[in-house]
Nucleic acid binder design. Structure first.
Length: 357
DNA sequence: AACGCGGGGTA
DNA sequence: TACCCAGCGTT
């Protein structure tokens, strides 16, 4: 039986959490800590935005090197808006969910053209920008501008569900969880509170490991009294992943390999890639090569797992002495010795490694 | 409301 | 292997 939203400890929760955060905040590149030791003033909204987009469904460890590289190459939103789109997509390669990179560019351009190069400081306006949804708008408003906003990500969902013993399954319980999150979100230090909730979820109140003995909120927590606090939140069962097979084609002539640019919509949209035979989530590839050549099987298929299907991708290789460029007008002939800089998404980077041995 | 969309870390 | 992760846009 969940506790009512007017749970008497709703005021104690943010205070206990913020006190814990003072000494346990993670030291992250995009963050200005509240500690005097590290305090450097307000965070740069550009850094907050960039990190939030990169962190969507992506772990902190994966984001760190990308954040460093992006801020080095494009130090502000003006630089990013003026960047070559192919360069930005290539720099994003390996991070996944490539629509984020396309929306990142679009958002930077809108901020320049419609907001005078400054990010809006409120949720409503932030929500109108490409790639910024309910979570990210709230996070930027709170963290970047210290605005009151209820920030609910997967960490907050888990912490709140456990605090109030919400055992209805996600995603159906999302609106209920949000109501409780509103109850405990203070009207001061909004950014610190949001980040403290995320740090608690990332370091103590973890999905499969609840370190209740170390938790500053355990006195206020319903799940604390369960035999297994990690039973909450309950999640709906996942659908099985289909298994797909397909081919990728390595066509090499005179030290160059044929790359294509994938369609802007759909999987790996807009990314450079090897030609393939049309495999997708709903169907296997047709085995038809992109051009007439002496194709040879090369090694075992490369195994790769996407969100919604698994793929076995067979590498096919042809290396004619010369090749008529007009026969494949849409390909870019990329120097084989510079393939590391082609910005191939991980699937095709794996296939290229198979080829290079 | 459900689905499509990457990839790496972790137990 | 299975699950998880600072979600968003489309249908």
């Amino acid at each position: 039986m969940p506790v009512e939203p007017d749970f008497p400890d709703t005021d104690k929760i943010p205070r206990a959490l913020l006190a814990w955060y003072e000494s346990h905040a993670r030291d992250l590149p995009w963050r200005k800590l509240p500690n005097a030791l590290k305090s450097e003033g307000a965070p740069d909204p550009y850094h907050v935005w960039l990190s939030e987009i990169m962190l969507q469904q992506t772990t902190v460890a994966a984001v760190k090197p990308y954040f460093a590289e992006f801020t080095r190459r494009w130090p502000d939103v003006q630089a990013l808006a003026a960047a070559d789109e192919a360069d930005v997509l290539a720099a994003w390669a390996g991070l996944g969910y490539y629509a984020r990179a396309r929306n990142l560019i679009a958002c930077a351009k809108v901020v320049m053209s419609e907001h005078d190069g400054r990010f809006p400081d409120n949720e409503t306006e932030l929500l109108k920008l490409p790639g910024i949804g309910a979570y990210t708008a709230a996070a930027i408003a709170a963290i970047g501008f210290d605005q009151h906003a209820v920030v609910v990500d997967a960490n907050v969902e888990r912490v709140v569900a456990r605090l109030f013993g919400i055992d209805a399954p996600l995603p159906g319980s999302r609106s209920t969880i949000r109501e409780y999150a509103e109850q405990i979100t203070p009207h001061f230090r909004a950014g610190d509170f949001a980040q403290a909730m995320m740090d608690l979820g990332a370091t103590l109140c973890r999905a499969r490991d609840a370190k209740c003995l170390l938790c500053p909120l355990s006195d206020h927590c319903a799940a604390r009294n369960l035999a297994d606090p990690t039973r909450i939140p309950v999640k709906a069962p996942k659908k099985a992943k289909p298994q797909r097979i397909g081919h990728a084609y390595w066509l090499e002539a005179q030290g160059h390999v044929a790359l294509v640019e994938r369609p802007a919509k759909g999987m790996l949209g807009g990314m450079r890639a090897l030609p393939d035979d049309g495999w997708r989530a709903g169907a296997d590839g047709d085995g038809i090569a992109p051009a007439e050549a002496e194709w040879e099987n090369r090694g075992e298929p490369v195994a790769h797992v996407f969100t919604h299907f698994s793929l076995q991708l067979q590498l096919m290789v042809a290396t004619p002495g010369s090749f008529d460029p007009d026969a494949l007008p849409d390909v870019q002939w990329w120097p084989v010795d510079n393939l590391d800089n082609a910005g191939l998404p991980t699937l095709f980077a794996k296939v290229a490694r198979r080829k290079m041995g």
